[in-house]
Design a binder for these strands. Structure first.
Lengths: 203, 186
DNA sequence: GCTTTAAAAAGTAAAGT
DNA sequence: ACTTTACTTTCCAAAGC
């Protein structure tokens, strides 16, 4: 094969073939990221729009597919971080972020703001936390959002801190390190978010 | 009418300049030992001034880029100072430099907090991605500038070519935020 | 697109004490 | 835990890869 998946798109390459390759790559990422068919279909739709607009010319096809998938996750409120997509696709987080911004601007896409509450389940599953703790963390974040401490903060950091607080109140034995690792943030971030949560919730 | 008066301060001015003649950058390196010149890395020579604290990039074409000034005037003076120093060091520079302001960066305090999430939903041409950056990025069409908005009520305005454009941008945005009830004053 | 320069905003990160 | 340093975002010009 002369052209690998990482090659730049060719002007004379049939659009149809390009799209079929994109779909098989999306199917591969679907298993790695454990996302549903609806997300993949949305990603394929966004990628096709990008193809039609000629956004693929001179760019890495893989990076564009990965960012279309990230955009689809955002649009369907499926909690997957840029880091998650980066690890699954072997493309640098920074490149996916740049392509994602390009998709937003060129396709005039408007994404919902990431809701940290939607991040709770994913972190809880990875850390092996109880349903009760998840419900507690959800309540904590609901109060937190009302007090507007979430503005500008990483949703994963907020969710991780809420889960940590929920663990402590429920007596679930999990360290900050366990929760931080499951969320992909540092313990320092959990501590910093915890400070704000403490003030907002009178803990 | 805005409820507060924004506090604006210009933080950086970028200016391009030209002395309209070829320059020997290696010769400058010999007479000015503390300049940085690594042609393999970047074609420009870095000429730093302590006052005003600026960095001027000088290219073989005689074109320059001056960064770090706090005002348009300071940028023009910095370029003049660089040319003077070159002449005092024995570098022949026939004409005075022509200067053009390319970009002005300013920080602003609106004096009240901003409801960022709501602003992200209602402001056109805006992007708010807290996973990537804590500020909301808003592209203004007239003047053509980019403003970063933070929940603290502080802003960063960049892309302006003249200082009045900074004030116009800030006033436009401030009025828009109040009109859409996105400001929270204590 | 990248390389270099400058500067602010607020969040996150890593390294050293 | 604390401080320090550094990286994320936005803008722009320069010459050349």
């Amino acid at each position: 094969r002369l052209r690998t998946w990482d090659s730049r798109s060719q002007v004379h390459e049939p659009v149809d073939r390009n799209f079929r390759q994109a779909f098989s790559e999306l199917d591969r990422l679907k298993d790695k990221l454990a996302v549903g068919d609806a997300v993949i279909e949305k990603a394929a739709y966004i990628y096709r729009k990008a193809l039609e607009k000629g956004l693929v010319r001179g760019r890495s096809i893989s990076a564009l597919i990965a960012s279309a998938l990230y955009a689809a996750c955002r649009d369907t409120e499926t909690p997957r971080t840029l880091k998650d997509i980066g690890q699954a696709s072997n493309i640098k987080r920074k490149d996916i972020a740049r392509c994602y911004r390009l998709l937003l601007r060129e396709l005039n896409l408007k994404m919902p703001v990431v809701d940290p509450i939607k991040c709770i389940s994913r972190i809880a599953s990875k850390a092996g936390l109880s349903e009760k703790t998840k419900r507690k963390a959800t309540k904590i974040l609901q109060t937190a959002e009302e007090n507007k401490i979430s503005a500008g903060k990483d949703p994963m950091g907020l969710a991780a801190a809420a889960l940590y607080v929920a663990c402590v109140t429920n007596g679930e034995n999990k360290t900050q390190r366990d929760v931080a690792e499951a969320a992909g943030v540092t313990e320092v971030t959990i501590r910093n978010r915890y400070k704000g949560l403490k003030v907002a919730l009178n803990l | 009418m805005p409820q507060t008066k924004p506090i604006v301060s210009v933080e950086n001015v970028v200016a391009s300049a030209s002395v309209d003649q070829k320059m020997d950058l290696n010769e400058i390196t010999k007479t000015f030992p503390d300049v940085e010149y690594h042609p393999d890395q970047f074609p420009g020579l870095v000429f730093r001034l302590k006052t005003p604290k600026t960095a001027t990039l000088i290219f073989t074409s005689g074109k320059m880029v001056c960064t770090g000034s706090k005002s348009e005037d300071m940028a023009r003076k910095a370029v003049k100072t660089v040319v003077q120093k070159l002449r005092k060091g024995g570098i022949k520079v026939k004409k005075d430099a022509t200067v053009q302001i390319q970009n002005i960066v300013a920080s602003i305090n609106l004096g009240g907090k901003i409801h960022l999430e709501q602003a992200a939903r209602t402001l056109p041409r805006s992007m708010y991605e807290p996973e990537q950056f804590p500020g909301l990025i808003h592209r203004m069409l007239d003047p053509k500038t980019v403003i970063l908005l933070f929940s603290s009520g502080k802003l960063v305005c960049t892309g302006a070519k003249q200082e009045p454009d900074v004030y116009r941008s800030v006033n436009n945005l401030h009025a828009l935020l109040e009109e859409k009830n996105l400001m929270i004053y204590d």
